Amino acid sequence: MTVQFTDADREREYSPSSCIGGNYAPFLQAYADLSAHALDRHAVRRDLSYGVEPRQKLDLFLPAPDDGAVAVAGTPRPALLVFIHGGYWQELSKDQSLFAAPGALAEGAAFAAVDYTLAPHATVHDMALECRTALRWLHAHADEFGYDPSRIVVSGSSAGAHLAAMAGLRSWADDADLPAGLPAASVLVSGVYDLLPLIGTSINDALSLTSADVTAISPLRMSALGAPPSVVCWGEIETGEFKRQSQAYADVLAAAGALTDRFEIPARNHFDVIIDLTTPGTLLGDACLAWLRAPR
């Protein structure tokens, strides 16, 4: 059930920077710096088109050797971690979303960062369809690049967690289901899973959501039956609403038999929590990397 707030309270609760004094620019710079470091150290297939629109592109890192060769018979193909960035559906891009690539590669997994068309040039519904199209493209090209199509894990932060959750839901009214087993798992970090409370906030200025829109694009208002095994987590330094929404969606997934873990990450805020995505020895990193390690 949606908590009732004054307009000012709701604005604050859905402004994650309110927990850190309002300035989140240093965290965006950290994303960019770490992503640039990943590009310097690792080979990457940049700007692969999964559709015809300018933002329908992705970057793909493959474990060495970066030749897409099929593994020796009997050797499992690597898993693929797909990351969908946040930014309230209206900022950031894949170019600041490559920071988890080195950690995935260190585990012998591939990594892809997905771009999608931002508001106001696309609706949230359109963005979710784009992310589903990107997953279909990655699944269809698994043989070409040499990763395992049955071990594609989707992850996302904030708005990206919403899109990752939407990508894994079945029985869309206006889109065919993804191939069976796609994605193999979801790692959802600090997401927004019910968009209704955003109406009336400044966040909606670019999104133009109406109450009629939210049922079809809010995971909390959709069936989770058939959803992939999912991890749901959030930072300790988050607003009450971000924590409540994560807990509520974890409850929905648990009822559908699709929740594998939920947890709060101490001393992390809405912006730095995702940097741990593939860092071993961290709560989030260990939970994510468990899906990427080769089966024994």
Results as ranks from 00 to 15, higher is better:
D272M: 07
V252F: 00
L138I: 15
D251S: 07
H121L: 14
I203A: 14
R77S: 15
S93L: 00
A159T: 07
M1T: 14
V114E: 04
D148C: 03
I265F: 06
V154D: 06
A38F: 11
E238L: 03
T260E: 15
A184N: 10
H162T: 15
G200P: 02
L163W: 02
A106L: 06
E264S: 12
T215S: 15
A110K: 09
S202H: 13
D47L: 08
E144N: 02
F271W: 10
F61M: 03
D272A: 08
V232H: 00
A216F: 00
S150M: 03
D261V: 02
A180H: 12
D276F: 01
G285M: 10
L39P: 01
T6M: 10
D213P: 08
Q96K: 03
A164G: 12
A290L: 05
D276K: 10
A161C: 10
P266W: 14
A134E: 06
F111D: 03
S15P: 04
K57E: 06
A8N: 08
D59T: 03
S190N: 05
H121V: 08
L178P: 05
A100C: 09
S18W: 09
H125Q: 11
A256R: 12
G156M: 05
R12T: 15
A287N: 02
S190H: 00
Y31N: 14
D67V: 10
T117M: 03
A140D: 15
V82Q: 02
Q56P: 02
R170I: 08
L81R: 06
Q245H: 03
Y116A: 01
V52W: 02
H139P: 07
E264L: 05
I265W: 05
R151A: 05
G240W: 07
R244A: 08
A109D: 10
D115Q: 14
V82W: 00
D286S: 11
V154G: 11
L28W: 06
A159Q: 11
G156W: 01
F145W: 11
V192G: 07
T75Q: 14
D95T: 06
A122Y: 04
V114Y: 13
Q4H: 14
S49K: 12
F83D: 00
N23D: 15
P197N: 12
L34P: 00
V192Y: 12
G146V: 05
V82M: 06
R77L: 11
L28V: 15
A159Y: 09
W89Q: 02
G240K: 08
L135W: 08
G181C: 08
S15F: 09
R136D: 02
P179W: 13
V52E: 08
A30L: 14
A106M: 07
Y88S: 11
V232P: 04
F111W: 07
N204D: 15
V124L: 11
E13A: 08
E53R: 15
R136Y: 00
W89A: 00
I203H: 09
F5Y: 15
S155G: 09
G200I: 10
R262C: 14
